[in-house]
C-alpha cells in the first residue's frame, strides 16, 4: 500500500509487527528438532506435533473445551434469542433495562465473575465445577446472543412478518417459516463468536477448574509455567490452524469482518 502518510504508516507497520510476529515465531519453533525453545530452531521435525497429540492432558482437556463451548453456545442461543425477540418485537416494559442487563457480563471483569461463581456457586452452593462453568460460559455469551441476533432482527422489515400473518400464518408459523430463516446469518455469527469466546476463555475456566474437568487453555498455561519445551508451540500451531479454518468458514458464509469485527463493508 503506497501512502502519503509516512508517520502513520510507520506506526501501522510497528503495530502489525507486535500483533503478528510473535505468532510467526511460535510457528517456526513448533517444527524444531531440538528440545528447547531456542532460536533459531535446531533442525526440522514433526516430533513435537506427535508429542502434543499423544499427551493425554492436552487431548482430554481439548475434548472438555469442545464440549463446554458447544453446550454453552447452544444454551446461550436458546435462552438469548427469545430475549432478542422480546426486545425487538414484543411489547416489553423497560426494554432498555432488560437489554442492559443481558449485555452487562461484558463490562464486569471476567476474573471477577469467575471468582464470584467459584465462591458463591461452587463453594457456597455446592454446584460441581462443570455446572458452574456451564453457567459462567453461557452468561458470558449472552451479550453476543442478544446483541448480534438483535442487530440481525432489527434488519428484518417487521412488515414481512405482518405480511405472513395477513396471508394466514399463525404467530408460531410466521416465526419458523419467515423470521428464523431470515435470522440465520445472525444466529450463525452469534454461534461462532460464542464458541470462540468460550473455547479461548481463561479467567473463568481457570478459577472454576477441577482435577476432572479442565479446559485446554488452562492446561497449556500450567504446562508452560512448569516446562520449557516446544510441545506448547506445536499445540499452539494446531490451535492456530483450527482458528484459521474458523475464519475461512466465517468468510465463506456471513463474511469475516461482519462476524468478528462488527464491520459491514
Amino acid at each position: 500500500m503506497r501512502t502519503r502518510h509516512p508517520i502513520a504508516a510507520s506506526l501501522a507497520v510497528l503495530g502489525y509487527i507486535v500483533m503478528l510476529v510473535p505468532i510467526l515465531f511460535v510457528v517456526v519453533t513448533a517444527f524444531t528438532a531440538g528440545s528447547t525453545l531456542r532460536f533459531p530452531p535446531e533442525g526440522f521435525s514433526l516430533r513435537w506435533f506427535e508429542a502434543a497429540l499423544t499427551y493425554t492432558p492436552f487431548t482430554s482437556s481439548l475434548v472438555s473445551s469442545l464440549i463446554l463451548a458447544v453446550i454453552s453456545a447452544v444454551l446461550a442461543l436458546a435462552l438469548g434469542v427469545p430475549v432478542a425477540l422480546a426486545i425487538h418485537r414484543g411489547r416489553l416494559p423497560g426494554k432498555a433495562l432488560v437489554e442492559g442487563l443481558f449485555l452487562s457480563p461484558l463490562i464486569v471483569p471476567e476474573l471477577v465473575v469467575g471468582l464470584a461463581l467459584y465462591q458463591q456457586l461452587m463453594v457456597g452452593f455446592g454446584l460441581d465445577n462443570f455446572q458452574t462453568l456451564l453457567f459462567g460460559h453461557t452468561v458470558l455469551m449472552f451479550p453476543y446472543a442478544v446483541r448480534v441476533t438483535g442487530a440481525s432482527l432489527a434488519l428484518i422489515d417487521p412488515a414481512v412478518e405482518d405480511a405472513a400473518r395477513g396471508l394466514g400464518a399463525s404467530a408460531g408459523r410466521t416465526f419458523f417459516s419467515i423470521t428464523l430463516p431470515l435470522l440465520r446469518p445472525g444466529l450463525f455469527s452469534a454461534a461462532l463468536l460464542s464458541f470462540i469466546t468460550s473455547f479461548n476463555n481463561v479467567p473463568l475456566s481457570l478459577l472454576l477448574q477441577s482435577r476432572d474437568f479442565r479446559t485446554l487453555p488452562v492446561v497449556m498455561l500450567d504446562y508452560v509455567q512448569q516446562n520449557y519445551d516446544p510441545i506448547v508451540a506445536a499445540i499452539s500451531v494446531l490451535i492456530l490452524a483450527a482458528t484459521v479454518l474458523v475464519a475461512v468458514i466465517a468468510e465463506r458464509t456471513v463474511g469475516f469482518a461482519r462476524v468478528f469485527g462488527g464491520i459491514n463493508r
Binding site: 422489515d157 412488515a159 405482518d162 400473518r165 395477513g166 396471508l167
Partner: peptide, 20 residues
Amino acid sequence: TPPEKRDLGMVFQSYALFPH
C-alpha cells in the same frame, strides 16, 4: 379476529416480500 383469520390481502409500503 387475528390477521391470519381475516382473509384480507394486504400490500405493504415496503412490499414486504419474503427475501428468502
